[in-house]
Amino acid sequence: MLTDPLLPLWLKLAYSAFMLVLVPVYWRAYGWTNFLYFCDVALILTWVGLWTEHPLPISIAAVGILVAQAFWLLDFSAHLLGRRLTGMTDYMFDSRQSRFLRGLSLFHGWLPLLLLALVLRMGYDPRALPLWIAIATVLLLVSYRWLPGPPPRDDRRPVNINYVHGLSDEAPQTWMHPHLWLAVTLIGFPVVLYLPAHVLLLGLAGP
Rank of each mutant, 00 (worst) to 15 (best):
I135Y: 00
G166Y: 00
D4K: 06
S143C: 13
W175H: 13
A183V: 07
D94A: 08
G203T: 01
H79R: 12
L66W: 04
M92H: 08
G188L: 09
I60N: 11
A136R: 01
F18G: 15
A78S: 08
G203V: 02
G103A: 06
I65F: 02
L167I: 10
P148M: 09
S95G: 12
N160A: 06
S77V: 11
L129W: 04
L115Y: 00
A42H: 00
A197Q: 01
A70C: 13
M122G: 13
P207Q: 10
L118Y: 00
Y37V: 01
A205M: 00
L106R: 02
E53T: 08
P130T: 00
L141M: 09
L13S: 11
I135V: 15
L201F: 02
G188K: 05
W27C: 12
G203H: 04
V184G: 01
L180D: 03
R127H: 09
D154G: 15
V48C: 13
D125C: 06
P196D: 10
G188P: 14
A134P: 04
Y15Q: 04
G109E: 07
L20Q: 03
S77C: 13
R28C: 00
L120T: 05
A14Q: 01
D125L: 05
L9R: 11
R96Q: 12
L7N: 09
G64Q: 05
R96L: 04
G109F: 06
A62C: 05
G82C: 11
P148G: 07
F93Q: 10
I135Q: 01
N34A: 13
P151I: 02
D90K: 06
F107E: 12
W27M: 14
L139C: 09
L167V: 13
V142Q: 03
W175S: 15
I44H: 10
A183F: 01
I44E: 08
F76D: 07
A117T: 06
V63K: 01
V25G: 10
Q97K: 14
Q173K: 06
H165W: 13
Q69I: 05
L45V: 05
I65V: 15
L2P: 15
L147Q: 06
W10G: 11
W47N: 03
G206V: 05
